[in-house]
Computed example of a mutant assay.
Amino acid sequence: MQIKSSLDNLLTPTAIALGNFDGIHRGHLEVIKPVLDWEDPSVYKTVVTFDPHPQEYFTGQQRQLLTPQQEKAKILEKLGIQQLVLLPFDRELVKLSPPEFVDRILHDRLQSKLVSVGEDFRFGNQRAGAATDLVDLTAAIGIATRIAPLEIDGDSRISSSRIRAALLAADLKLTQELLGRYYSIFGTVINGQEIGRSIGFPTANLQYPAEKFLPRQGVYCVRVDTPTQQQLPGVMNIGKRPTVNGVNTTVEIHLLDWEGILYGQQLTIYLHQFLRSEQKFPDLAALTSQIQADCDAARIFFQI
């Protein structure tokens, strides 16, 4: 999949899904579906999102994301998207009126044949344009527009904010229902203090994007994809490691019944079950005993 960080050298013409798509949840998938279903092989199946996130641009504060750029790209590529365009959300873009956005961005630069958006999509200066306005403006210049209705789960719409709340509550069942998949953390294994190795439970210390939204701190049953192996069972701890006077939040994974070197490798961690909150133990012996209990609980959960 091609990733473009500007409007130069795009693969055109395009069928595009347009939005922020943080999380790529079930609601987002409904927006992307018309693009994936587009049958003209000469048209590139494209997702157009904004960089930085509009809320980050207006507030000046870094936004914690369910799917940072690299993770979003991996998910979209698996879906069958051919091109991800990170539309620079800057002063020039913000000033465009709805008609200017359609003419200059969608028509001239992206050469769109199809545009798909969610029912609540807004665009143009002061968010003046609604999804229905997009239908009228694009129809006038021969671009088809599809509006995906809001996706409902239970009594409420599926949204990134609901997913964040579920993750902070460690409600992984609800998280999975809203996403349509397990929540994941993607990162690279770096050197740690090797305390786990010294007590018989070697861990992979994961360097994850600074903007990645982390769930409630604690211990989880996880499955892990390495570059060469898939769905390895393990136990993950997210927290500050109070027993050893840790300060910074870390993500550490112990793979069950596995040996090898993971330094420098990229891992994808899938969260399956929350086991317990992080706690401080009186000494390493008590910590070791609890880690053994966590591993035993994970084996029961995964039936291994």
Rank of each mutant, 00 (worst) to 15 (best):
M1D: 02
M1V: 13
I3D: 02
L7T: 15
A17R: 09
L18R: 01
D22N: 11
I24G: 08
I24M: 12
V31S: 02
I32V: 14
P34V: 01
D37Q: 14
V43A: 08
T49Q: 01
P52F: 07
Q55K: 13
Q61S: 08
Q62S: 12
Q62M: 13
Q64G: 08
Q64M: 13
Q64K: 15
T67D: 10
Q69S: 12
Q70R: 14
K74C: 02
K74L: 07
L76W: 07
L76K: 07
E77V: 05
K78C: 10
L84S: 03
D90M: 09
E92F: 12
L93E: 07
K95D: 13
V102E: 00
V102R: 01
D103R: 15
I105T: 09
S112C: 14
D120V: 00
R122N: 02
G124P: 03
A128C: 06
A128R: 12
G129W: 03
V135P: 02
A139I: 04
T145K: 02
T145R: 00
R146H: 11
R146E: 09
E151C: 05
I152R: 10
D153H: 12
S156R: 15
R157V: 13
R164A: 11
A166T: 05
L168S: 13
D171V: 03
T175F: 01
L179S: 08
L179Y: 04
S184I: 01
I185M: 12
I185E: 10
V189S: 08
I190C: 10
E194K: 15
I195F: 03
R197G: 07
S198E: 04
I199G: 02
F201E: 05
P209K: 06
Q217W: 08
V219Q: 13
C221F: 05
D225V: 06
Q229P: 06
V235L: 06
V235P: 03
G246R: 08
V247S: 10
N248H: 14
T249D: 03
T249K: 09
L256A: 09
W258F: 15
E259S: 15
G264V: 03
Q266A: 11
I269P: 04
I269S: 05
H272G: 02
H272T: 08
F274T: 00
L275W: 01
R276T: 06
S277I: 09
Q279M: 10
K280V: 05
K280D: 01
F281I: 06
P282G: 04
L284N: 04
L287I: 02
T288H: 13
Q290S: 13
Q292P: 01
A293E: 04
D296N: 14
A297P: 03
F301I: 04
F301Y: 15
F301N: 02
F302R: 08
